[in-house]
Nucleic acid binder design. Structure first.
Length: 613
RNA sequence: GGUUCCGUAGCUCAGCUGGAUAGAGCAACAGAUUUCUAAUCUGUCGGUCACAGGUUCGAAUCCUGUCGGAAUCACCA
């Protein structure tokens, strides 16, 4: 629904008639007039100046005059320097609002019959989810919603890193120190339970390592290295090598990994048990955040994939083999490096897995596009992956997109697990809901509701604060997360926008039964009403832009501006006791439409609206 | 060192397909409701858009360079 197409065509006709210049209507850009000038939309005439060799103001006046005389939609014009400000007749706004009221699923595109996979979350099984995961999850989920709104068929997926040495560390620690404990027996959420054993392993390992450094053995390693660094500095860097070459715990963990790879029944059973605990814990957190997945891939299934593709690529000469048997691709002609795809011993690397997983997904879903929600530290990896898929000639290669996002930092700097500054996902969710509870208690607005309903409202408010705080920032920018600010509920926040929606619902509840929603007789908009109609008209474009850019912050910032202007309207203009029945009808419809836009825009951000607060 | 990303008010962020006097929120201060939910509204204070060139009628926005910050450059994932 393009409301301005007639206006653009009118300007085009004016230019054609007056100057015999052909401009298609999409070449004519109309900007919203800045509020310090009178007018609704502005046409910039500077580009015509050179061609016509006339003064900008004269051109503006001529076009404006022509429009007044020949087009009924134009009520007035004013030329300021090279800016032609056009004021539209009030009827234009009324008609637009009626059209919107009659539209099905306003703001949403009709199905395009294109399928897109959106991958997000993708956690490891040895640590509970933290703030970084929350940003990932919210971005992925929101983009999935936005793509749906843009007419795509969307499949939400994740890939879980459930194998490797890390999970063996947790398993080993549980065997050593667990005494058969379970999440049930200890009442600890499964992912935290397993994470605790991972930490326990690290602690035991560090103790072992420090002991080693004190003993003759450690002394000998330090001297044998011939290092010029202090002993302390040397051992700081030596940690990995110690793990692999000297550590008893390291040897045990590696032994376990070997047993896992050989399919040892006991090891696999423990692995499955511990992973299940983690998944149960993750599910609780996903549920709290309100996200679901249509499919899940596990690295334990996919880590051997990709070798077939490597064979095919070798046959086609896309890849090449070195003498030692390792397989590579040379991307230097496009400014990238040579990249290893298969080790000399024939085992696969991360890239191989990703190639294989992409193929697997194509076999499973036949998608046209795929979005990977992964942090920006992997920008290069995905650049390489996409180039490889292109060279392999995959049909979906052009549709691959890395939704890259910046790191989440605290005001003190990066989160560090060693320093215990990692913000846990479950903790921050609980905190922000608690804050909502405190603030709500002060207001006393929902006291009379049943407890379960109150809890539901507080959950929605708290999560809105958290989610909006994160999703309002452009994905690619790194963001500073101040826990104190994230629980704010005033100003540019989720609850502020919810409050606008709640006010609208309140108005609708109080509206007289059987109100005539025909506003015949109301024919002059005030400035507060007009700006709201303009916002409503912009909604489809905002959704489209967010879809093209895969940027939820576009929608987040839009909802804020809409809510802000609604609050002002609400403050300045009487709705239920308006000056006339027609005015009242119009304002209720206008409010209702704003409510629609806020509700659906928030839904695209994965944020729920309460009816009261 | 190579490559990529970022740098806008004290803080957190918008604005970036070039348009008018660069916007919000927070913080600080001063106000507003006998009337639809004050999680609201109004006002004051706050800027060398990192810096320097270039393109243009016009640059926070595009180009080049410099400075500062981050990421990445494994037969790790």
């Amino acid at each position: 629904m393009d409301f301005l197409v007639n206006i653009r065509e009118a300007v085009g006709s004016a230019i054609k008639t007056l100057y015999d210049i052909d401009l298609s209507s999409d070449q004519i850009v109309l900007n919203e007039t800045r509020k310090e000038f009178s007018g609704d939309y502005t046409y910039v005439v500077f580009p015509l100046v050179k061609q016509l060799k006339k003064k900008p103001t004269d051109i503006g006046d001529e076009i404006g005059q022509w429009l007044i005389e020949n087009r009924t939609q134009i009520a007035a014009y004013e030329t300021v320097q090279g800016f032609l400000n056009l004021t539209l007749v009030d009827d234009f706004w009324f008609k637009s609002l009626i059209d919107i009221g009659h539209a099905d699923h306003y703001g949403y595109s009709s199905p395009m019959h294109k399928k897109v996979l959106v991958e997000f979350a993708s956690p490891n099984t040895n640590k509970p989810l933290h703030l970084g995961h929350i940003r990932n999850i919210l971005l992925g989920w929101s983009c999935s919603k936005i793509l749906k709104a843009n007419g795509y068929e969307v499949v939400n997926t994740q890939i879980i890193n459930d194998r490797g040495i890390a999970i063996c560390k947790s398993m080993l620690a549980w065997k050593k120190f667990g005494n058969g404990a379970t999440p049930e027996s200890t009442c600890i959420k499964g992912d935290h339970f397993v994470g605790d054993y991972y930490v326990a392993f690290e602690k035991a390992f560090v103790a072992e390592y420090e002991d080693f450094q004190q003993r003759d053995e450690g002394e000998a390693v330090y001297h044998a290295s011939g290092s010029t660094e202090t002993k302390e500095a040397f051992f700081k860097k030596y940690k990995n090598q110690y793990f692999n070459e000297h550590s008893a715990l390291g040897a045990e963990a590696r032994q376990m990994l070997m047993l896992w790879e050989q399919g040892d029944a006991e090891t696999l059973a423990l692995w499955k048990q511990m992973n299940q605990w983690v998944y149960d814990g993750f599910d609780v957190t996903f549920d709290k955040l309100g996200v679901t997945f249509d499919s899940t891939y596990y690295e334990s299934d996919t880590y051997l994939l990709g070798k077939k593709v490597i064979e095919m690529g070798l046959d086609r000469g896309v890849f090449y083999k070195k003498e030692d048997g390792s397989v590579w691709i040379d991307l230097e002609d496009v400014g990238m490096d040579q990249k290893l795809l298969l080790r000399s011993d024939g085992t696969s690397v991360y890239m191989t897995q990703d190639i294989g997983t992409a193929q697997q997904r194509f076999e499973d879903y036949g998608m046209d596009k795929m979005v990977y929600t992964v942090g920006d530290e992997q920008d290069y990896h995905f650049k390489v992956l996409f180039e490889i898929m292109k060279r392999l000639g995959e049909s979906y290669a052009e549709g691959l997109y890395h939704l890259s996002y910046g790191m989440v930092e605290l005001p003190e700097g990066r989160m560090k697990s060693r320093e215990g500054t990692v913000v846990d996902a479950d903790d921050i969710v609980a905190e922000v809901i608690e804050e909502a509870r405190l603030l709500s208690a002060e207001r006393g607005e929902i006291e009379s509701l049943p407890k379960s309903e109150q809890d539901d409202i507080l959950r929605k408010i708290g999560l809105a604060a958290l989610k909006f705080f994160i999703v309002k920032v452009q994905p690619k920018k790194k963001m500073i997360f101040d826990p104190k600010e994230s629980v704010d509920m005033q100003g540019q926040t989720g609850p502020y926008i919810q409050n606008a929606y709640v006010r609208i619902q309140s108005v609708k509840r109080k509206m007289a039964v059987g109100l005539n929603l025909d506003w015949n007789g109301y024919n002059t908009l005030n400035e507060y009403e007009k700006i709201l109609v303009k916002h409503i008209m912009n909604f489809p474009d905002i959704v489209k832009e967010a879809g093209e850019q895969l940027d939820p912050s576009t929608i987040a910032n839009y909802t804020y501006v809409v809510a802000k202007d609604y609050h002002r309207f609400y403050h300045e203009v009487r709705i239920l006791n308006a000056e006339s029945e027609a005015a009242k009808s119009f304002r209720v419809v206008l409010s209702d439409t704003i409510g629609y836009v806020l509700l659906h825009a928030f839904d695209m951000l994965g944020i729920e609206m309460p009816e009261r607060m």
